[in-house]
Simulated assay, not measured.
Amino acid sequence: MLIHSDFSRRAVVTAEDHRWVASPQPGVERVMLDRIGAERARATSLVRYQPNSIFPTHGHPGGEEILVLSGTFSDDSGDYGPGWYLRNPPGSSHQPSSLDGALIFVKLWQMAAGESTTVRANTRDSALWHRAGDKEVCPLYESSHEQVSLQRFPSGAPVRVDTQGGAELLVLDGQLSEGHERFARGSWMRLPPGHSCALTAGAAGVTIYLKTGHLAVLIA
């Protein structure tokens, strides 16, 4: 299966474009944002758990990155509410579930083979945030080829994105705009290395998940 598999091109899935499809596990649906492969795929998805949903224990040879958007996501390491960022390195395994239901943003098979860092960060903890010019930043992970953070911009502020190594963002709250395009909460965007963009925060500001630097190797 190939979905937005050409990493040299801009890819966008707006909130209005979401198409939920059933996963092999009952009670779990997903919106496929990009994908290369079948069930063992390099994939970026929104995943929705119905209450009392559970996955069998499984491994992640290529690692897994999760941001909890709503509800409570659980696995062997604990229970995680909205705003929790989880990073499970290659070779990890778990049994994910949700007692009350959850919506999560998930990235699979997108980590370097030698990565060993496990992250559990509550982005609703104000101590994790700092001001950088006219924006606020919550750093989540950084390596030589990848930077992950949440960023919050005030009304009308330019949203400057370093696309030298490519960039990917998800609108978590508020709205982004670029020209006549509008990107509401839940909209996802992937920008190839060197892509020029002129994004602006909406009238109520905007909060985004942002990953940069990670796409250069895919189109080298």
Rank of each mutant, 00 (worst) to 15 (best):
L2A: 02
H4I: 02
S5D: 15
S8K: 14
V12F: 07
V12Y: 09
E16T: 12
D17H: 11
H18E: 14
P26R: 01
G27W: 00
V28Y: 01
V31S: 05
L33C: 05
D34M: 02
D34G: 11
D34H: 07
A38P: 04
A43K: 03
V47C: 00
R48V: 02
Y49T: 00
I54A: 12
I54F: 00
P61H: 15
P61M: 14
D75T: 12
S77D: 15
G81N: 00
G81M: 03
L86D: 06
P89C: 08
S92F: 14
S97V: 02
S98C: 11
G101P: 08
V106K: 10
V106L: 14
W109L: 03
Q110P: 00
M111I: 10
E115M: 15
E115Y: 13
T117C: 13
T118V: 15
R120E: 12
A121C: 13
T123Y: 04
L128S: 02
H130M: 07
H130C: 06
K135P: 00
E136H: 06
Q147C: 09
L150S: 06
L150R: 05
R152T: 02
G156K: 04
V161S: 06
E168I: 02
L169V: 04
L169K: 03
V171H: 01
L176N: 08
S177H: 09
S177K: 07
E178A: 14
A184D: 13
G186P: 09
S187M: 05
L191S: 00
P192W: 05
P193C: 04
G194W: 08
A203D: 13
T212A: 10
T212K: 09
H214Q: 14
L215S: 06
A216H: 12
I219D: 06
A220S: 15
